[in-house]
């Protein structure tokens, strides 16, 4: 179990915010922190990894105390078994793939781990390449492999896939799940993509103004189980168009744009960019072989 009990005054874009957070994460779980920008998600993860010092509180991981303001304990980032993957990869541009991984090795650590990770991440053929010559998906695989060099117990993924196109995202989502299982990690993801969250995580914590306001199992959290409708997808509203007495709403689902007719009463509640569910009964769709 990871137990966070933290207080920290933060300067955010909207002024001062007091982060006051109690968060318990089970070992081996894949959890997501969800919430608006500035809710305190990244600050929480930076405190867990030792990059930001809380004003007060405790961080306990299993039997170990990583931080305690009362007992004056504050482990250095390199003493905490945390791997951190950022949205912008944060690779060293002057080093090739292998060197980026080797840089993360601790003194006296066996370099066999590098071979294993290069192989697992399918980076063997790319090991001499510099980051600038790699695609976004390849860079993120390097960043992920580097985060695993020190055999972390906790893997932190701060919007790791949001810069990638959908096809690559889906591929890397599967890869993240594989990594989580293979290395028996406790993984903490920050993501805004509901489909991604539901696919990857066991449970979700929603943060608002520095506190947890809601938590639950991923599928229950977004109300996915709350109707008998079996044909359901989440997507983003692209267009809202009046047609006769109705509206036609265009929704981006995965790579496809679908169109749904909507009564004005419901269409009035929608705005372009809104995340929506589209649902229908299993009895309605037709199915044809392509």
């Amino acid at each position: 179990m990871i137990r966070l009990n933290l207080k920290k005054t933060l300067q955010s874009a909207g002024g001062k915010m007091v982060l006051d957070l109690q968060l318990n994460i089970k070992k081996g779980e894949f959890v997501t922190l969800f919430g608006e920008s500035g809710a305190g998600k990244t600050s929480t993860l930076r405190m867990l990894s030792g990059l930001l010092r809380p004003d007060s509180g405790t961080i306990e991981v299993g039997e170990a105390t990583w931080f305690s303001s009362q007992e004056n304990i504050d482990l250095k980032p390199q003493q905490r078994k945390v791997g951190y993957v950022f949205q912008d990869y944060a690779l060293f541009p002057n080093m090739n793939v292998r060197q980026n991984l080797e840089y993360a090795l601790q003194k006296n650590q066996d370099s066999a781990k590098i071979e294993e990770l290069l192989e697992f991440a399918e980076l063997g053929e790319l090991q001499q390449r510099k980051p600038e010559t790699l695609s976004g998906g390849q860079k993120q695989r390097v960043a992920l492999a580097r985060a695993l060099v020190q055999r972390p117990e906790i893997l932190i993924l701060d919007e790791p896939l949001s810069a990638l196109d959908l096809k690559m995202r889906i591929k890397l989502q599967e890869y993240l799940l594989k990594v989580h299982k293979k290395y028996k990690l406790t993984t903490i993801l920050v993501s805004h993509d509901i489909a991604e969250i539901v696919k990857l995580s066991d449970s979700v914590f929603e943060l608002q103004n520095g506190s947890v306001i809601k938590k639950g199992a991923a599928t229950d959290f977004f109300g996915l189980n709350r109707t008998s409708a079996k044909f359901r997808f989440s997507g983003e509203v692209l267009k809202i168009q009046r047609e006769d007495v109705l509206y036609v709403i265009s929704v981006l689902i995965g790579n496809d744009i679908i169109r749904v007719v909507s009564d004005p009463k419901e269409a009035e509640l929608l705005e372009i960019g809104d995340r929506v569910f589209v649902a229908s009964k299993a009895f309605n769709p037709i199915i044809q072989k392509i």
Partner: peptide, 22 residues
């Protein structure tokens, strides 16, 4: 009744509340 070119929108009062029929 809101009469459109192709479709019309009927608002109805029923025992189960307001129902809209297109």
């Amino acid at each position: 009744i809101e009469v459109g070119v192709l479709l019309s929108r009927l608002m109805l009062e029923t025992k189960i509340g307001e129902v809209i029929a297109i």
